[in-house]
């Protein structure tokens, strides 16, 4: 069995093809994927779950890195926070990246820490000039430290700040322009925000800097009835909904970036994830046919 940090042959791991469809690697599926090695274009992992070494998780990653291109998706850098960057976290991230050389590295347009206390959530950023300056400054520091560009993912937010002075897509485009980073576009987040906050999904997809989008996320949401109305919650705990598939088909006409099926709660059997990935391939095949026709 391979040991963590052994000489892993990563020759196929450093790029993810256009139109490739991946799935999020979750611990209930580790063993099955290692043993069966299903046909998946690429895998995405939550970086923080693999910081500890040696560990059972790292052994799994050692084995899978040989066979699948990888993407590292972080949830803990807290780029939108006014706290100082967590150097220990960054060092752990760099060590992980140096070990596996993932094709993509991504983080969120959000914050999760305040006064050194973490909140285990992706909290909303007001889209102001001050937030933009802070976010870009921190992202530049991170990219300098890692020696690589990150992708920044658009968030789900359940509220907006009336102090915001720009649209979310303007904020993301400006981050991209200033930091020369890539973008990760989560189409489920755009849909959820469009229903909850009245954001115009079509305009979003038209306005976002499409050439900078290097990854697409597809996921499911949950509808929750509250006292004063209904709200969609970005649970990543169900199949991709038809409106999100529609956004995917629309966006595929202009963007070839690899896409990922993300499922984080109520995790189903691996077969269900694989069938969602297959469905994603069918959706993009429909678009390709239309474009040829």
């Amino acid at each position: 069995m391979l040991q963590a940090n052994a000489n892993i042959d990563l020759s196929d791991s450093r790029s993810i093809a256009e139109h490739a469809i991946g799935i999020g690697l979750r611990s209930p599926h580790h063993q099955q994927i290692v043993e069966q090695r299903p046909q998946i274009d690429w895998l995405e992992v939550h970086s923080e779950n693999f910081f500890t070494e040696p560990s059972a998780q790292r052994r799994v990653l050692d084995q899978l890195a040989v066979h699948y291109p990888l993407s590292f998706h972080g949830i803990g850098l807290s780029l939108g926070s006014t706290d100082p960057l967590n150097k220990k976290h960054l060092q752990q991230m760099k060590a992980l990246i140096d070990c596996y050389q993932p094709a993509l590295i991504s983080e969120h347009l959000s914050w999760s820490s305040n006064n050194s206390r973490y909140f285990n959530d992706l909290l909303p950023v007001p889209y102001t000039q001050e937030s933009l300056d802070i976010f870009c400054d921190r992202l530049n520091q991170v990219q300098d430290f890692l020696g690589r560009a990150l992708l920044v993912e658009n968030p789900t937010t359940y509220l907006a700040f009336s102090d915001s002075s720009m649209h979310e897509w303007e904020f993301l485009n400006e981050i991209q322009r200033r930091c020369q980073c890539g973008l990760l576009l989560d189409l489920n987040n755009i849909y959820v925000n469009s229903i909850n906050l009245g954001l115009d999904a079509k305009e979003y997809l038209q306005q976002i800097e499409v050439d900078a989008v290097q990854e697409i996320h597809l996921a499911g949401f949950t509808r929750r009835q509250l006292e004063n109305g209904q709200i969609l919650i970005d649970t990543h705990g169900s199949r991709v909904s038809e409106p999100v598939w529609q956004l995917f088909r629309d966006f595929r006409r202009s963007c070839n970036a690899p896409a990922l099926i993300e499922w984080d709660t109520d995790i189903p059997a691996l077969e269900e994830l694989l069938s969602q990935a297959e469905l994603a391939k069918q959706q993009q095949a429909v678009v390709s046919k239309e474009q040829i026709g």
């Binding site: 285990n120 959530d121 909290l123 509220l159 700040f161 906050l197």
Partner: peptide, 19 residues
């Protein structure tokens, strides 16, 4: 200065509950 589809307390409670 929070806005959204529900009263501010309910919107914030979504974050609080999730935490």
């Amino acid at each position: 200065n929070i806005t959204g589809p529900l009263p501010v307390e309910q919107l914030m409670s979504l974050y609080r509950n999730n935490f």
